[in-house]
Amino acid sequence: MPFMEFVNFYLMPGIVLGSIYALGAVGITLVFGILRFAHLAHGDLATLGAFAALGVVTIFGVSPWVALPVAMVACAFMAIGIDKLFYDYLSERPKIIVVMSSLGIALMLRAVVQVVWGVDTETYTRGIVRPDDYWGIRIRDREIYTIIAMFLIVGVLWAFLQKTKWGKAMRAMSDNPDLALLSGVDNRKITMLTWGIVGVLCAASGFFLGINTELKPLMGWTMLLPMFAAAILGGVGRVEGAVIGGLIVGIAEETSVLFIPGEYKAAMAFAILLLILLVRPTGLLKGKVL
């Protein structure tokens, strides 16, 4: 197979898909690292974000790119609201109870999407977009924007975590919650802040999945496994790890069709997850193991 064909049909789609996974995986790694539980409603929160953007597009007739920030804010408030309404009351109990609660939230969010928007497949814009040719690399504009947006969003988040007071407090909570509390970090504010950021990231990953493929009520749920695989592969609690993990999982899924039947593309994430748990549970960048 010629090299350019590999790049155009397997590597580039893999990087695009990987960027979408990376956005979700960063959120998962934040919840896993700071709040210390596996958030199973993550995918369905992304679905809600994608459909919220669709709602803005259909009601106001604006471009999807204008709808994205609106969806991000909506999703952030949604995540904070879910925490305040449900997870917060379970904080004194074993963490696995919150995992169970989040499984219920996943179903509830999906039901909301199905009731409000129905079960049909939707798109942001109609018509087929042909990829442009850049020195032999064929890529669509929206795919370029996806990759750029991912690096931009994660870059801003990384700078926030490294440089600001709040970011440092979040990292402190992730490293050692008891010490962080002793040093005067406000647990409740950090939790709220985390959920806000997670909501923004969810909306972004759902939106970019929607703009590159289609919007379906199950779109987020099917992303859940790859996103978790990416977060654990990169190392739980490591933002840059989640990006690397997301890209690896995305590229692995897209290139897997060269070796295994296409139906089993979705199995790649699972294989990666089991493999990394088997050989290096801390992930590539030495994250946490809960």
Partner: peptide, 26 residues
Amino acid sequence: IGKVCLRFRSDYLAIATIGVAEIIRL
């Protein structure tokens, strides 16, 4: 599945079993 995931907290088992159900469906 148990062999790989039961060393860790049950969160990992939850994710892995979601995956198993998905693979079986496929």
